[in-house]
Design a protein around this nucleic acid. Structure first.
Length: 639
RNA sequence: GCCACUGUAGCUCAGGGGUAGAGCACUCGAUUCGUAAUCGAGCGGUCGUCAGUUCAAAUCUGACCAGUGGCUCCA
């Protein structure tokens, strides 16, 4: 007899050697059906394993957050089962559950085609129908090596396992895999899955190692969840900023300038608007500066970039020395330090905030480039703040509020991450204690929840990162507040304190957008191209019904432009329907139609984006006033 | 950088060893219209670049350029 304690505190007696499945069955048939695994003293394990006496257990069902990862891991095994069947001799790499599904890497002699994926899916269906149980077996090292003698990838993994680790092997039907587990009880548990794509992936992510073929897939417990996930992927595709950017005529790329965007007049209007907003927010207490884009290597030697970051810098050839002694700047920080060094600073000036929008270049490897999200040329809303230790808390508090307010303007919900001292770091423990304490206090003052990332800080100081969630639930890391104790040392920065002696300031690196390029990519996808009025490249399109109203419509357009509104007149000799359609496709927030009635009455028939034929006849004055107000307040909408 | 795929008109795409196709856009003409495509005509391409194979290459081969997906969320 054994006794186990359930989550509600009750104790159950079971026969010796009773398994999780037996426990579930003893509680009820519904639970037995819904059970996928069991937590024993906090560790998740297979239902089929015997329960130890005296354990505290809880049955894990589909509703449990851990259950999905388990299902997906099992799905990866089922996929491998199918692949091994269709591609005998395929080597088996890693096959974990990931955030949105699972993958498995295979050593095969050719990449998988879309047809292969379909065939694998069909074979998986058969494996599922067979409802093979997942069985666990503990083996010793030599037995493990014997079992996987024909698979060098697995042998490599086995040789790395520590002597104190239990080596386990899982079998489902014909497929045997080295695996830590746990798994769902049988292959039949997998009902709703889809293979999504195949791609090359290095063994262990190391580009000097063998290239494997990876298959990505996803799986859910419920059919509607899978359908919803697939719909979300589809929605993300539709919102792709690269597609919308072309459609809305915002920017383009050219093969002669890989990784650097060309901004059209429309795109430039949006970027300018973003920068103007940032400038407005930074009117008080910030010094906007401009510094050179290109520097002699001497600067990079001091900053440490020449040693550690050279690979990512664009070096420039100097005709006089014949050497590549110059580099385009990949970051603004050193420029700001040089600017700080130019004068002697009093403690009274601190915190001193230098803000800039300078263009930066980073030589990303060609394969990493992607639309506006990974580029080689970009500009940041960068700011470096020089301050005293005791000012850190107040400054971080101020910055955090600033950043959150900014995101709120776009309807982006932010979450915070707090990264503390890493293993490899500079500075004393006392300094880190103080820095982390100050950051944490500032964080807590916001009243927002934050995630702790121990050991994730920079070597030169702790940091706060800001993640935002967009309209379709995707997360992006954007802003950052980083404390830096190293740079002031390297650049010998100082200020004169109240005591009339020299002190070392601390530097805070702060970015809100990250880069304008990437932020705009996120905004395009977040708004699906339908920018709020204040950001829209074209805010109003004025559409006269016939030539008789062209003059009146032109007068309205001029009137709006005078009021600072980006208004365009569409007096082409096309039908009204045609022009309305084009305006809708261009996602212009408002179309103001001028017919005879409007021209005579000094009104506009306003069509609001997304509102269809529902129109709103308003006086020109009133409409202009309304738009100017909405733009000034940077209201979200319309739509 | 590495692997796979892709590159045909301004855009989206079809075709494919024997003189380049469609729709939209653009130009011109007609239409002057009340809220998502009026009709007709016309213009437009060294088929990403450079080599090679071939009687013949947009098509096959190679190199290069560019784009797309991916390159440990650890058995």
């Amino acid at each position: 007899m054994i006794r186990v304690t359930l989550p509600d505190g009750s104790v159950r007696e079971l026969g010796a050697g009773a398994t999780g499945s037996a426990l579930a069955a003893s509680i009820g048939p519904g639970l037995a059906r819904a059970a996928v695994a069991i937590s024993v003293d906090g560790a998740v394990q297979d239902l089929g394993r015997p329960l130890p006496d005296g354990a505290t257990v809880s049955i894990i069902t589909e509703r449990d957050p851990d259950a999905l990862a388990l299902l997906r891991h099992s799905a990866a095994h089922i996929m491998a089962t199918a692949v091994r069947d269709l591609f005998p001799g395929a080597g088996i790499g890693f096959g974990p559950a990931i955030d949105e599904g699972f993958y498995y890497d295979f050593a095969v002699d050719r990449p998988f085609t879309p047809e292969d994926l379909e065939a694998i899916e069909r074979r998986m269906d058969e494996v599922i129908t067979s409802d093979f149980p997942f069985t666990r077996e503990v083996v010793d090292r030599s037995e493990a090596k014997r079992r996987f003698a024909d698979d060098p990838l697995k042998l490599e993994r086995i040789s790395e396992l520590g002597d104190d680790e239990t080596i386990t092997v899982y079998t489902d039907g014909p497929f045997v895999d080295l695996c830590r587990g746990p798994h769902v009880p049988s292959t039949g548990k997998l009902k709703h899955f889809k293979l999504l794509s195949g791609a090359g992936a290095y063994w262990r992510g190391d580009s000097s190692r063998q290239m494997l073929q990876r298959i990505y897939g996803t799986a859910f417990f419920r059919k509607d969840e899978l359908a919803q996930h697939l719909m979300r992927l589809d929605e993300a595709k539709k919102r792709d900023h690269r597609v919308l950017g072309k459609q809305l005529d915002l920017f383009f790329f050219h093969q002669f300038a890989p990784g650097a965007a060309f901004w059209t007049d429309r795109g430039t209007a949006v970027v300018n608007e973003l920068q103007r907003y940032m400038q407005q927010l930074q009117r008080d207490g910030y010094h906007e500066v401009r510094t050179p884009l290109m520097y002699n290597k001497g600067l990079w030697e001091i900053s440490g970039h020449w040693g550690k970051y050279k690979e990512n810098m664009f070096l420039v050839h100097d005709n006089e020395t014949g050497e590549h002694d110059f580099s385009l700047k990949p970051m603004n920080c050193p420029s700001h330090y040089l600017m700080y060094q130019q004068k002697k600073h009093s403690y009274r000036e601190l915190p001193l905030r230098y803000a800039t929008y300078d263009v930066l270049h980073r030589n990303e490897v060609s394969g990493a480039l992607s639309g506006l999200t990974r580029v080689r040329q970009f500009s940041q809303d960068d700011c470096h703040i020089f301050l005293m230790d005791r000012q850190i808390q107040a400054e971080v508090h101020r910055l955090t509020n600033f950043i959150l307010k900014y995101y709120e303007t776009f309807g982006l919900k932010a979450t915070l991450k707090f990264a503390t001292r890493p293993e490899e770091r500079i500075g004393t423990d006392q300094m880190w204690d103080e820095a982390e304490r100050a950051l944490r206090h500032a964080l807590e003052a916001t009243g927002l929840p934050y995630e702790l990332k121990p050991g994730d800080g920079a070597f030169y100081g702790p940091k706060i990162d800001f993640d935002v969630e967009d309209a379709i639930g995707r997360r992006w890391q954007l802003g950052t507040i980083q404390l830096d104790y190293a740079a002031p040392e390297r650049f010998d920065l100082s200020y004169v304190g109240e005591d009339n002696t020299t002190h070392r300031p601390v530097v805070i690196h702060r970015a809100v957008n990250g880069s304008f390029e990437r932020f705009l990519a996120i905004l395009i996808e977040h708004f699906a191209g339908a920018f709020p009025l204040w950001l829209a490249p074209e805010q109003v399109r004025i559409v006269p019904i016939s030539d008789a109203q062209t003059e009146a419509a032109a007068a309205v357009t001029a009137r709006m432009r005078d009021a600072g509104i980006r208004a365009h007149l569409d007096d082409r000799h096309e039908t009204l329907n045609y022009r309305i359609r084009e305006g809708e496709i261009a996602k212009v927030p408002y179309m103001a139609v001028v017919g005879q009635r409007e021209a005579e009455g000094n009104t506009l028939a306003v069509r609001t984006r997304g509102a269809g034929t529902k129109q709103d006849v308003v006086a020109v004055d009133e409409f202009v006033e309304r738009l100017v107000g909405d733009i000034r307040e940077r209201r979200l909408g319309p739509g």
